[in-house]
Design a protein around this nucleic acid. Structure first.
Length: 1066
RNA sequence: GGGCCCGUAGCUUAGCCUGGUUGGAGCACCCGGCUGAUAACCGGGAGGCCAUCGGUUCAAAUCCGAUCGGGCCCA
């Protein structure tokens, strides 16, 4: 197979147009079913399983989605090339609060009451529609960025099959006694009847000034009162305990006189009254002169009983601790009194503490935000926030108020109704994650995390503080909680399948249309408790949507109801990849579900990506106006450039500052360069009818330049692969980019151009073509996972097959390795050759000698035998005669430099002294002393280990020295004499260059010939006949004429030194 | 308030784990060179209190502690 028919049609390969090229390739993928084939080809091979973290299509896909889809796609393509079967099922996340909020905004439904008035059925129907709003946009984006995934058979979390699997898994947890009902304290808005997520809470913070109170709690068994502080007086009727820090120092003080300053608001204390509070806070709190009569640790207060503020508001029940002092580690002395009033149902800390110490857990406030009947006759039935003043009055009247003041702070408000949110203990269902803590920590340690610290740090830290997982939500749109409770006996039953539900259904219950509210709400079950004939009613909750996605590994297959084998063969999955914000989201929920249901991990490797920020490191947001639209780049630099840019720009786990200019740079450097290399090869390959399958030239029969680039591509490929394995895709991409630009284009192709210009068939030309063919194929295979389009175009042009069905050149346990031979010695030599070429240019700049003016002689001093490359170096340096000179002293002297590492270890604090002595010494005598073993500096014996010898050229030569590891110093010396012959040659090159540039300006074909006239001024340097012939052949001039004298009219002209030269090209 | 990550030139970054010669690249900028070599290439220049402060050390971008700024998650 040589060059394919499709590319033969055009004699010349076109310029790079990324949008057109990528469309052409994508069309071919479609018509050839390349994606499907890339999977089917590996059908019988070892699977590598990938699990797609499902996005929600109710928002437009943005640049950050391109990033995560890139890293998913890249690994899947790579593993496919390594020979694995890599199936990729798409998925959609369709439930949850964000969907409801979106629809509520759309329909202007601001509360649960309004939703219910609108109708739950209709509302959920709207939610269901809303999740597909941007499906088309997602498809288009995925296709354009070449994210290969099966979007035609995705898993969808709202499908009955998916929900049934989720139900099944919850039943497993239930059967293991991991499911229980409790309370969760959440910010709650009684006006809308909804509890809020952190995100919604953060929408509504407002600064408010409201009354805060210092309340006196009278001790039962001793004199005095404990003073506690609260900013929420409405929680005081619910008070059941006081918390103190066991190690905090408290004081009992006696009021000695009336307050000296003006008193703010209600409350007070009598002279002689005793108060207890933290020592540190006395100046803040007390407004009376008082004497300290006792000082003690908080632990001494623990267990003391006090009189309830609102007797009868809460039933003591069987609690031993109600209205006593308890210890808590969250108590601080930063504000308040160092004693925390605890109302179990209205604070997270309060609730936790209450559960620990056994306070009664009862509400004094209803879901409507009003005090429950029986709390207090004045308060009952009133909205709590309207009662602040009444409560303060009541306390004041009973001498239970020390003082009140106005307190200004940020407090969360409902973003819809503007009312303050109440922290409120809601009924909630939990998964007992605390019971499997050790297991889940162990499983987490079995996952290969990239970066490692995500697993050990971020996730690990979370798991060490694991809490029970609140899985129920008082919402409408979601997977219904499959728990039914008997109205007569209170028995609970968790349903694990549709069949089970139907078999337990009461006769007059309808069969639900689908597994959503309100349909399942109408299903009543016959009580499953022995001897009970009651009806069971479903708990009216839906499940946390993280629970949905946590089930993805099995629910995507409708396991265990279908696809048993498919699931078992793909679990745990080999690879997942999402952004770092999923740590406590999907990464956790997958692990939590697999731990509790399967006693296993659910993924073997997890790549956690950094976030994408704007080019100033700021978060992208609509309000900042710094959001990057991926299509701006798809339509300009193309998918390859954007994918390559994202990969190479920073480590995948680091936050990425997205710089649109960087995409342009990647396009211009990497892809334009690679395209031109391909174009260069392909144009000549077509012209010469090059056929890779015919008359193969073995690598050892090719010249050094060919063997060098082949060795380089092998070396680069090995590093590239190693970096893939260690997840350092950015380093891999940078190294390959450097190879393409510097080694392949700027050196190999540049040095090989003339070999291909040769019109006659030659061994050397064909060797070059074989080499380019092989290098381009290897490069395109390496690049393909990151940039799927251009490499595929190149591969297809050269072989007629897609790169995505090719084998990974590094091989694997499934496919063979296929790399050209390495020759590290040759690579080393070539790197020296290139350094010599660069050094030569540096010397010329310093010596102010134009590059086009040849030098008669050049000498290489030191280094390995490079005779094989002398012609290349001579040409690069524009030197007529290049030789190796072994007499270093002719050009060089020696310098001695300290080896800081060795000397530092030896001399320690005396190092500065040693260094200063060293700088004073004559290098030659020091060296001879070292040889004799008598060298000393500042009293330290100096050996050859302690120093580095450097050779530098003597002054007066046009020369420069560089250092090469292991080889030592290498110098280049140029003869800068100027002769007539050299001037003539230089002149010829100047003229040639101008004419070539004119040809290009006229857009002449490479093969076209021109007629040429050149005028040299009378006093111009002489141009030798040989050099004139050189101009003629280089510029394909026929006829041609050289005239001494000035032309009649103004023509193209340029200046060399002081002489003007005119020329005319037709 | 807690946990994790990040901070190096105008911009994007390497180096940090394992301390040691003058902190290396690319983009942009300036000067020069080269080119049938592409939005290319080469040489030189300018541009760095390596976020800040303190500690360890003969020696700190690198190790330790604190602070500041940014990001994410949790409260």
């Amino acid at each position: 197979m040589g060059v394919t028919d499709s590319s033969k049609k055009q004699a010349k390969t076109g310029n790079y147009n990324p949008v057109e090229l990528e469309k052409e390739v994508a069309d071919r993928w479609k018509s050839d079913k390349t994606f499907e084939n890339s999977i089917e080809n590996r059908r019988s091979s070892k699977p590598f399983t990938f699990l797609e973290g499902p996005p929600t299509a109710n928002g437009k896909p943005g640049i950050h989605h391109v990033l995560s889809r890139l890293f998913k796609d890249m690994v899947c393509r790579w593993k496919t090339m390594e020979g694995h079967l890599v199936e990729r099922k798409g998925g959609w996340d369709t439930h949850g609060l964000p969907v409801e909020i979106e629809v509520q905004k759309q329909l202007n439904l601001m509360s649960n009451e309004e939703i219910e008035a609108y109708g739950m059925e209709a509302f959920n129907q709207k939610c269901k529609e809303s999740v597909w709003t941007y499906e088309e946009a997602w498809r288009e984006m995925s296709e354009r960025m070449a994210f290969w995934v099966d979007m035609d058979n995705p898993y969808v979390t709202l499908h009955d099959e998916y929900i049934e699997s989720a139900w099944w898994s919850l039943k497993q947890m239930h059967d293991k006694d991991l499911l229980f009902r409790g309370h969760k304290v959440l910010p709650y808005c009684p006006q809308t009847g909804t509890s809020y997520s952190t995100h919604e809470v953060s929408l509504g913070y407002k600064e408010v000034a409201e009354p805060a109170v210092y309340v006196k709690f009278k001790l039962k068994d001793s004199e005095g009162s404990i003073v506690a502080w609260t900013t929420t007086p409405w929680t005081l009727p619910g008070n059941v305990g006081l918390a103190v820090g066991p190690d905090v120092t408290y004081c009992r003080v006696k009021v000695t006189s009336k307050p000296s300053e003006s008193w703010e608001g209600r409350g007070g204390a009598e002279v002689g009254e005793e108060l207890i509070l933290a020592k540190d806070l006395m100046p803040e709190v007390l407004r009376h002169h008082a004497e300290v009569i006792e000082e003690f640790q908080g632990s001494k207060l623990v267990g003391q009983a006090y009189e309830p503020l609102f007797p009868g508001a809460i039933d003591k029940g069987d609690s031993d601790t109600a209205w006593t002092v308890v210890a808590a580690d969250f108590v601080t002395t930063t504000d308040g009194t160092g004693i925390v009033h605890t109302a179990v149902m209205y604070g997270e800390d309060d609730y936790q503490l209450g559960m620990e110490v056994g306070f009664p857990a009862q509400h004094t406030v209803g879901m409507d935000g009003k005090f429950i009947k029986g709390t207090h006759e004045i308060l009952d039935g009133n909205y709590v926030k309207d009662c602040d003043s009444k409560i303060i009055d009541l306390l004041d009247g009973e001498n239970k108020l020390y003082r009140e003041h106005i307190y200004t702070h940020d407090y969360p408000h409902c973003w819809r109704t503007d009312h303050p949110l109440l922290y409120y203990a809601m009924d909630s269902w939990f998964v007992r994650m605390t019971a499997v803590k050790d297991k889940i920590i162990d499983y987490n340690s079995q996952v290969e995390w990239a970066p490692e610290w995500t697993g050990t740090g971020r996730v690990g830290e979370w798991l060490r503080n694991i809490k029970d997982w609140a899985i129920s939500r008082e919402r409408y749109w979601g997977t219904p909680l499959p728990v039914w409770i008997c109205e007569s006996c209170g028995h609970q039953h968790c349903i694990g399948s549709i069949d089970e539900m139907n078999s337990l259904k009461t006769e007059d219950s309808p069969t639900p249309k689908e597994l959503h509210r309100p349909y399942v709400d109408d299903v009543k079950l016959c009580c499953t408790a022995e001897g009970c004939s009651g009806e069971m009613v479903r708990e009216p909750y839906v499940m946390d949507c993280w629970f949905d996605s946590g089930c993805a590994s099995f629910a995507q297959w409708h396991y265990p109801f279908e696809n048993k084998e498919k699931f078992e063969n793909s679990f745990p999955v080999d690879y997942i990849c999402e952004a770092v914000d999923q740590t406590r989201g999907w990464f956790y929920s997958l692990l939590a579900v697999s731990t509790t249901v399967f006693d296993n991990i659910s993924y073997r490797r997890c790549l956690s990506l950094g976030h994408i920020l704007d080019n100033e490191g700021k978060k992208m947001s609509k309000s900042r106006g710094n959001v990057v639209n991926p299509w701006d780049h798809f339509n300009k630099e193309g998918t390859d450039a954007i994918r390559w840019y994202m990969t190479s720009q920073s480590a995948p786990w680091n936050p990425m500052n997205f710089d649109p200019n960087g995409v342009r740079e990647t396009y211009a450097k990497m892809f334009l360069t690679l395209w031109n290399v391909h174009k260069f090869h392909l144009d000549y390959a077509i012209l010469d009818n090059f056929d890779y399958s015919k008359d193969f030239i073995p690598v050892d029969k090719r010249n050094a330049l060919d063997r060098w680039i082949l060795s380089r591509v092998s070396s680069v490929a090995k590093n590239y692969h190693d970096q893939y394995v260690s997840w350092e895709f950015h380093k891999a991409a940078r190294e390959l980019e450097n190879f393409v630009i510097n080694d392949l284009s700027n050196w190999y192709v540049r040095r090989s151009r003339r070999r291909l210009w040769d019109e006659a068939e030659s061994h050397d030309k064909r060797a070059c073509q074989f080499t380019l063919h092989e290098v381009l194929l290897t490069v395109s295979k390496l690049m393909a996972p990151i940039a799927p389009f251009m490499p595929d175009k190149i591969h297809f042009d050269l072989t007629g097959t897609s790169v995505h069905t090719a084998d990974w050149p590094l091989g694997s346990d499934l496919v063979d390795k296929n790399l050209p031979p390495q020759d590290l010695g040759l690579e080393k030599e070539m790197s020296i050759v290139r350094m010599l070429a660069e050094t030569g240019r540096k010397i010329r700049v310093e010596a102010k000698r134009r590059q086009r003016l040849p030098c008669k002689e050049g000498w290489i001093v030191g280094g390995p035998d490079l005779r094989e490359f002398h012609s290349i170096i001579a040409e690069e340096l524009n030197v007529e005669n290049l030789t190796t000179e072994s007499n270093l002293d002719r050009f060089q002297k020696i310098e001695v430099l300290p080896n800081h590492k060795v000397l530092g270890a030896k001399c320690r604090a005396d190092l500065p002294k040693v260094l200063s002595e060293l700088s004073q010494l004559d290098p030659d005598s020091l060296l001879s002393d070292i040889e004799k073993g008598t060298a000393k500096l500042a009293g330290f014996e100096i050996t050859s280990e302690d120093i580095n010898i450097k050779r530098v050229e003597k002054e007066g030569y046009a020369a420069s020295t560089f250092e090469v590891e292991e080889t030592g110093d290498i110098s280049l010396v140029l003869d800068v004499e100027i002769t007539d012959d050299l001037v003539s040659k230089g002149l010829a090159r100047e003229i040639t260059r101008r004419i070539q540039s004119k040809r290009k300006e006229l857009d002449l074909d490479l093969e076209a010939s021109i007629s040429l006239k050149v005028w040299l001024e009378k006093d111009s340097p002489k141009l030798n006949e040989d050099d004139w012939q050189y101009i003629i052949s280089e510029t394909r001039s026929k006829p041609s004429e050289l005239i001494i004298g000035n032309p009649e009219k103004d023509l193209d002209n340029f200046q060399v030194e002081n002489n003007k030269i005119y020329f005319k090209v037709n």
